[in-house]
Simulated assay, not measured.
Amino acid sequence: MRIGSAPGPEVFERLARAAFTRIPPPFSDHLADIVIRIEEFADEETLEAVGIDDAWHLSGLYHGRPLDEQSVWSSGDMPPVITLYRQPLLAEWSETGVDLEALVTHVVVHEVGHHFGLSDDDMHAIENGA
């Protein structure tokens, strides 16, 4: 998608769902319960919890129990959620010129990595090795 008018939340949700379809098995077999949310910005509580001072610096967040920490004894948990923050993504899209679909896919794949228990350092190492 090229830079033009700012796409709405429904476009971001569609792009995020499309990103899920490109994740191969066996990983894709563990994504059915993840909820996708689109918000304009992270709230203050979220920013504080992840140690970020500026809402413009958070484009996505995974919230839930990673698969490697789940157990049959963990009942009553809410489903895992990937939240995409629309305004920071729009800013990055505008500033970098990266295709919006590629940008959303990158953020979704990163947050899916957290679902599988990978840390930011783990994912940076994987990206640098690719």
Rank of each mutant, 00 (worst) to 15 (best):
D29I: 06
R22T: 14
A16V: 03
M123H: 01
A32F: 10
G113R: 03
P24Q: 11
V108T: 04
S71R: 15
R65F: 02
L67V: 06
R14Y: 10
P25N: 07
L100T: 01
D121W: 09
V35C: 13
Y85C: 02
S5L: 08
R14M: 13
I23C: 03
D54A: 06
A102N: 12
E69A: 14
F12L: 03
M1S: 15
F20W: 05
V112Q: 06
P88W: 00
G64V: 07
Y85W: 02
V108C: 04
T21F: 00
D77Q: 07
E40P: 09
D29Q: 14
V35S: 09
F27K: 09
L89S: 02
S94M: 12
A6I: 06
T83R: 04
P25R: 11
P25Y: 06
G129P: 02
A125S: 14
Y62D: 02
I38G: 00
R37P: 03
L89I: 10
E44A: 15
S75V: 15
D33A: 13
M78H: 15
V72E: 15
V11H: 08
T46Q: 08
W56T: 12
I23G: 05
T83Y: 02
I23D: 03
V109W: 12
L31D: 05
L118I: 03
V50H: 07
I34D: 04
V104Q: 08
I82K: 02
H114E: 01
S71Y: 11
A18W: 04
L90N: 05
L89E: 01
H30Y: 15
I34G: 06
G51F: 07
P7I: 00
W73L: 15
Q87H: 09
A32E: 14
D120S: 10
H106K: 12
F20M: 07
P79H: 04
A32N: 13
P88Q: 02
R17E: 13
P88T: 02
E45Q: 13
A42F: 04
R2V: 08
V81S: 06
E39P: 03
Y62F: 15
R14F: 08
E40N: 14
Q70F: 07
I126M: 13
P79N: 06
L118W: 12
V112F: 08
R17C: 08
E111H: 08
L103T: 07
R2Q: 13
W93F: 13
S74P: 00
M123C: 01
R37D: 13
D29N: 15
A42E: 05
S119E: 07
